[in-house]
């Protein structure tokens, strides 16, 4: 879920780069060398997850699960997404290079924030609390990205209002699917590999 080359206004493209460069610099400074392999592998995982298509009524949509990335990487979600989106642009022409900055912010800010506030709740001894927290992280991350994408497309050129509106409406059901898959994945990990959730609560 990202915008193509040439569509956004120059101002938005510039704001995207001005926003993402300091975040990437801070993130790279914060990351310790033992965390680099994990961030790199999650970046590859995000790329592979985008191959999974989920049927949604008469149509289908590919998964993004940026919430899951935010959960396991913390601030490292930004370089991971930046690299994964670079590969998507490089190998499949999804998104693009000039819009890489804004696309990273669109996909990265919601999972980073939702994990920051909700990841601690995965620790709960009550299964329902863990499930709902993971569901919220998955859904809010995706929904946040959809809202940002629609808003940015509209702000870029108000003539795109219909596109922004349709994009938002059609992607809302997908937020629930993303939330459910994130929640089931977290419950699976809690049962089979609980150490993974320790990483999710304390990425560093």
């Amino acid at each position: 879920m990202h915008i193509s080359e040439g569509v956004l206004s120059p101002g938005i493209v510039i704001v995207g780069w001005l926003g993402v460069i300091p975040i990437l610099a801070f993130s790279l400074k914060t990351i310790k060398s033992h965390q680099l392999p994990r961030i790199a592998l999650f970046s590859s995982l995000f790329f592979v997850i985008s191959f999974i298509h989920v049927p949604l009524g008469p149509t289908s949509a590919h998964l993004s699960l940026n919430g899951l990335l935010g959960l396991f990487l913390g601030i490292g979600v930004f370089p991971a997404l930046f690299i994964a989106l670079l590969f998507q642009a490089l190998f499949f022409q999804y998104g693009g290079i000039t819009v890489l900055g804004i696309n990273t912010l669109i996909m990265g800010i919601p999972p980073y924030l939702s994990s920051l506030f909700l990841a601690q709740r995965l620790n709960s001894s009550r299964k329902a609390v863990t499930f709902v927290s993971a569901l919220a992280i998955g859904s809010f991350s995706f929904l946040g990205s959809v809202i940002l994408l629609s808003l940015i497309t509209y702000l870029s050129n108000p003539k795109f209002y219909l596109f922004s509106g349709v994009l938002f409406i059609t992607q809302v059901p997908m937020a629930l699917v993303e939330g459910l898959i994130t929640a089931f994945t977290v419950m699976f990990l809690k049962q089979t590999y609980p150490e993974a959730l320790n990483l999710a609560r304390h990425p560093y």
Partner: peptide, 12 residues
């Protein structure tokens, strides 16, 4: 989700 869970464990 369960397939992804296995993929996640392998990734970690």
């Amino acid at each position: 989700a369960y397939s992804l869970g296995i993929l996640l464990v392998k990734t970690l």
